[in-house]
Design a protein around this nucleic acid. Sequence first.
DNA 1: TGTAGGTATGAATCCGACT
DNA 2: AAGTCGGATTCATACCTAC
Lengths: 277, 277
Amino acid sequence: MTLAEQCRARGWPVWATEDESVVLVCADCLDVLSLIEAGSVGAVVTDPPYSSGGAFRSDRNQSPSVKYTPNVQRAYAAFSGDNRDQRAYGYWCSLWLAGLLRASRIGATCSMFTDWRQLPTTTDAMQAGGWVWRGIAVWNKTEAARPAKGRFRNQCEYIVWGSCGALGTEVGTSTDGIPCLPGLWTVPTAGMEKEHVAEKPESLLEGLVEICPPGGLVVDPFMGSGTTIVAAVRLGRRAIGVEIDRKYFDIAVKRVEAELNRAPLFEPPPAIQKKLI
Amino acid sequence: MTLAEQCRARGWPVWATEDESVVLVCADCLDVLSLIEAGSVGAVVTDPPYSSGGAFRSDRNQSPSVKYTPNVQRAYAAFSGDNRDQRAYGYWCSLWLAGLLRASRIGATCSMFTDWRQLPTTTDAMQAGGWVWRGIAVWNKTEAARPAKGRFRNQCEYIVWGSCGALGTEVGTSTDGIPCLPGLWTVPTAGMEKEHVAEKPESLLEGLVEICPPGGLVVDPFMGSGTTIVAAVRLGRRAIGVEIDRKYFDIAVKRVEAELNRAPLFEPPPAIQKKLI
DNA sequence: TGTAGGTATGAATCCGACT
DNA sequence: AAGTCGGATTCATACCTAC
């Protein structure tokens, strides 16, 4: 049984292309990961809920859109899984990271967003999940949440990345077709038409998806509104996306359908910026 | 007895201006910190040896210039204290960080360089030393990183920063005269005439020193070739620098003397770039 | 002044050979 | 032998030299 068939059999909403080169599932990722064929994944690219931004349980218990954007008029749907404390966040991350490792081939990579506050927890969790921690890439948002006198602006988010075992040396783990990738992207968020509080720019995700060999399988267990999957489709990678929240799942399906329906001859996708210093 | 007098009494090489607005000491910083007047420090800005760059003790035991720059024609003098494993590095950092906290006034800040590998250890050590961890600033070195196919370039180093208690709110901790500081600096190292393998660009340190209130006291317990002290002098801060290696201490003294002897009317220091996105 | 080509560089990393 | 050592190798970029 294919992944889509197994998920449908469990009663989860599923959207997939006919050849299942793209499969989107609405469910808890911890339930789905065990169904992915072992050794099939080429790259994990994901942006989990950070569970950051509050020292106390009551702060974290607020709905995320209230917590992160208190003065913003636009209302975002609440998203799930953003209410763990730092220790629990680490344990929880190591759970799904371990599940993804099982599904990954040797030499696959895992790239995962985090903010400054959760960065140490995230590197621990990645290693606890069995991945070899390889480094940190930086996303320069250019805008700080709150500029303040006498403080350095926290204007960056971070991408912690690692590999499933050796990188580009073992049989079948060639880096052919993968370029040298930048370690820093400067992509402003200003003026983005966001569907999700934490939505990332498409050009940023295109840069990250490039670490997956062409034609390889990209997995995003926290799909949100689907930016990672759109980028993967655009760059000719296969993709699996999982999202627990029905509202965001529906948004992601729409965006991925729209991307697949683009007529590439008349409206080619924007060139990926190779150099983004 | 003044700091310089106390250090001379212990037989350590000392260089100081007459008013002791700048004091440089050649000694182990752990021995010197307890002599600094409690509550006098406005900002710690430092770049300790990372003890990075190798999975095995034997790798770290190589001379730092072999470890970090094996193909390079030019040879740098060795520097001390670069051979601790990750746990020992954390303990050692927390020791001198605690010593600096005692010497700091409420609202003082500590900014400390680290690389990706030691970043989680560094944030732990800063908190263990009693500082309130406030964030991470980023130094984008641009071209300097070693590129590799299928990997994100490690082109950034990180500045972990924190405060001695409350920041800019308690009595006497005003942020008057301190601007909103950037959270990312893009400063290439290419073409730098370096005296030390790990020497940082002067403009970068000028940016960091700005977090100290004008006229305040900047301390660098790992002075190296003295870039932090030069930046502090240039921006009108008082400064204490400590360096254990005599060779680098002598270099630092020369650079600081040269900076103090500049005729500011005829050769003004380069304007500090306020905005370095 | 402009272009092309060669060289030096990087706060490493990897792997085979060895003890 | 849940190890250790040492030498080969990585490639985009800046800079230098030649034309």
